[in-house]
Design a protein around this nucleic acid. Structure first.
Lengths: 354, 354
DNA sequence: CTGAAAGCGCTTACAG
DNA sequence: CTGAAAGCGCTTACAG
């Protein structure tokens, strides 16, 4: 009883079984599954047909032992508090699966453990790694690359500037926000910065601040939220109390920060958005369109970014030693909702205390 | 040039390399990695030490070809629109990785493709599958089980009642909501139902409605939202217009539905929450605590649920043929926020039209 | 176009 | 306690 339990599961069918069934050699059967391999068309059809009937699938472990390709894509995620990522994650996964690749996750609750998680991931020899986390130590990145798994950074660049990247033109996005606010009469701007080490944050800030100065405004003041989270945005909102001078326009590093910021400013400081100040985000997450937020924001070209990532993954799965490249997509449109309003140029700045 | 590219990556070290380096046989080296295997303690230490130095890790593919265990946990997710899941997903993944298991994802954008995704997943022979999706066809479930991968249903039961399950006592949760509303003077109740096929939905509804009747109220009316999404909740909110009689208390199948419902009712019908009606959710997702929502809700015992799932996974990774069991945890507390208020018993129901 | 053989990196009876 | 050998399920030169 304890030694041998009845095992109801159907034993997996192997090449051998299939070969015997078809009266062919194992080699021939195997070749049928590789489009580039030389087999008689008739033979291939017969094999594929019977394989489907018997539910045969090549064992990917045995396969990769030889081919050194695993069809596994590693995906490094950190905190998924930002609703931008879950969506990306599932859609990317679905698309990758359609392309025959499988996604293996590396997640860590504490940032320091990310490296460990990546180690474990690497023992499965992913063909490549997609980084959806805000942070990945360059050490971990090197490990991946040494293990033969190039890294694709989604929505940001790697810390060392190496590796593959897919993101939108965040500087241009920042400039668009500046133009939009200035065109609608805003004069005193603030940028709410999130994670300072993230290229995304830096680029948006640069585009925004430089354009403001180019157009003759004072350089926007900076509030450091520190992270890409609701809570960080909320605290940043409270910090508005310390900002000298009247402020009429705020650009937050992304939507979730903007949403937190607005609630902080309303709850904590009793200000009204957009009456007292306009707030703009970045990403256009679904929630930004909800009646409770109606956030004015820059859309990300998400579909294109994911598409580009999948294409790149296919290439890398085939040929690991591609030269790293950065894929920059045009940012999406500015979606105007209810957290911004025009400032009449004649009107005095309404709230001197903010 | 085209034939052989310079490969900078360090070749992976194998048992052979390690054995040669140590002057031992491959068998001995291999045994050192299995706590139950018989090796001299001294030998084992030496092997493990040198392995760490050389960065050796047994190749899991080669390993599983023999052991038939992969240490892979399949995770089936569908839409992650409900913020409840991303959190669960990353935390579960992190915990599983700490236990030495790796998570492979199956995701599909269209529900019909879930089966395909599961097929692909199964070719990697996961030791078990955790279902985080609202839907998984019993056909797919059978496939998993036939492939030797038992399924753990998180936060719900499987459609056929078989398989493993970890969830809280949703009926008890429903009863608590009914008691809370009735104790605070509510008399005319509605339940907003989400996906009708989900055990979670059915149980919450049963607990709520039965308790209401037990306590002498009319059976709560049902609004069918149909899904566990914001949008479904929003539409359900609009449907309040069609509900006959005055309503003062609403229990929604979960938080994201409740949030949508409230916005629908406010935006579409011009009602105020909680002044015109009280609304209660279920889950206590982070967002429920934001100033923009302040949703009264039942907390899920998330930490315990995840812990139980990880334990179960460890057991199943060791011994696949455990007898299926359902793990029911006590629901968390009712968290009272700003979407509910007491109804004075004397007061007339204020809005006859709703 | 097909088949027999070697080998990927491991584990595990089987001897010793 | 250790080692030599077989074998997991595949792919791929190498012959034919």
């Amino acid at each position: 009883m304890a030694t041998k339990q009845k095992d109801t599961r159907t034993a997996r069918v192997t090449v051998k079984d299939l070969a015997r069934d078809l009266g062919m050699s194992v080699s021939t059967v195997s070749r049928a599954f590789y489009p580039d391999a030389i087999v008689a068309e008739k033979t291939r059809d017969a094999v594929l047909k019977r394989a489907a009937e018997l539910g045969y699938r090549p064992n990917p472990f045995a396969q990769s032992l030889i081919t050194k390709k695993t069809q596994i894509v590693g995906m490094v995620v950190s905190d998924l508090t930002n609703p931008f990522y879950p969506e990306v994650m599932t859609h990317l996964t679905a698309k990758l699966q359609e392309a025959g690749m499988n996604v293996m996750l590396a997640a860590a609750n504490e940032p320091e453990k990310t490296d460990e998680a990546v180690d474990l991931l690497l023992s499965y020899q992913p063909d490549l790694v997609i980084v959806l986390a805000v942070t990945l130590s360059s050490h971990a990145q090197e490990k991946c690359e040494n293990a033969g798994a190039p890294c694709i950074f989604f929505n940001r660049l790697s810390a060392n500037g190496l590796g593959f990247g897919v993101s939108c033109d965040n500087e241009e996005g920042g400039r668009r926000v500046a133009d939009f606010l200035i065109d609608s009469g805003h004069k005193n701007l603030v940028y709410v910065s999130a994670f300072p080490g993230a290229s995304t944050n830096v680029e948006r800030q640069n585009g925004f601040c430089r354009r403001a100065v180019e157009r003759g405004l004072e350089a926007p003041q900076i509030i450091e939220a520190g992270y890409f989270t609701y809570e960080a945005g909320y605290s940043a909102g409270l910090k508005m109390a310390d900002i000298p001078g009247p402020i009429d326009g705020v650009f937050c590093a992304n939507d979730i920060v903007a949403i937190g910021f607005i609630e902080g400013v309303q709850e904590g400081l009793g200000l009204s958005v957009p009456e007292d100040l306009s707030v703009v985000g970045f990403d256009n997450i679904t929630m930004a369109g909800w009646p409770s937020h109606r956030l004015t924001t820059i859309a990300q070209p998400l579909e294109e970014m994911m598409q580009a990532t999948v294409e790149l993954s296919r290439e890398l799965a085939r040929e690991r030693s591609l030269a790293p490249r950065i894929n920059r997509l045009a940012p999406g449109e500015l979606v105007q909702r209810k957290t911004t309003m025009p400032r009449s140029p004649a009107k005095e700045t309404p709230h001197a205390e903010c």
